[in-house]
Computed example of a mutant assay.
Amino acid sequence: MLVLTTPSIQGKKINEYYGLVTGESLLGANVYKDMFSGVRDVVGGRTSAYEEELKKAREVALESMKEKAADKGANAVIGVRLAYHNLGGTMGNTIMVTVFGTAVSYEE
């Protein structure tokens, strides 16, 4: 599945637009506790364990979006955007990763 941030596929003809597809993933508050209660894995002021958890959450959201696109018959998602939201409040320090774009089929 081709995933692009651009609104078109250079050199390719889009045959059909299937509409919006999304993917979401939550990074729970317990991740913060787990990372900072034990040994801190900090390199150059960055917490690599936290970055790895964000990467996993982003990959889950992307895979979810791609599955939804494939279910519609698409072979690409264009105009993809990614956002991180701190849900705070009653959700603690939960972070939601959201990804969305337009599912399309194009001539390969």
Rank of each mutant, 00 (worst) to 15 (best):
L2F: 13
L2A: 14
L2V: 11
V3S: 04
L4R: 12
L4Q: 13
T5L: 11
T5D: 15
T6G: 08
S8Q: 12
Q10E: 15
Q10H: 11
K12A: 12
K13D: 14
I14Q: 01
I14A: 03
N15A: 08
E16G: 02
Y18C: 06
Y18W: 10
L20H: 14
V21Y: 07
T22G: 03
T22E: 14
G23M: 04
E24D: 12
L26N: 07
L27R: 02
G28K: 10
G28P: 09
A29P: 06
N30W: 01
N30Q: 07
K33Y: 04
K33C: 00
K33T: 12
D34G: 03
G38L: 06
R40C: 02
D41C: 00
D41N: 10
V42P: 00
V43E: 15
R46Q: 12
R46I: 14
T47G: 06
T47R: 04
T47K: 03
A49F: 08
A49P: 05
A49R: 15
E51P: 03
E52D: 12
E53P: 02
E53V: 04
K55G: 03
K56L: 02
R58I: 07
R58H: 08
E59Y: 03
A61S: 06
L62T: 00
L62Q: 08
L62C: 04
S64I: 01
S64Y: 03
K68H: 11
A69C: 08
A70E: 13
D71C: 06
D71Y: 09
K72W: 01
G73C: 11
G73L: 07
G73E: 11
G73R: 09
A74I: 04
A74E: 06
N75F: 05
A76P: 01
G79K: 04
L82E: 13
A83W: 11
A83P: 03
Y84D: 15
H85A: 14
N86Q: 10
L87G: 05
G88Q: 12
G89P: 02
T90L: 09
M91P: 05
M91Q: 15
G92H: 11
N93S: 14
I95Q: 01
M96W: 08
M96V: 05
V97H: 01
V97Y: 00
V97D: 00
T98G: 05
V99Q: 02
F100I: 05
F100G: 03
G101L: 00
T102K: 11
T102R: 09
A103P: 06
S105K: 07
S105L: 00
Y106G: 01
E108C: 02
E108M: 08
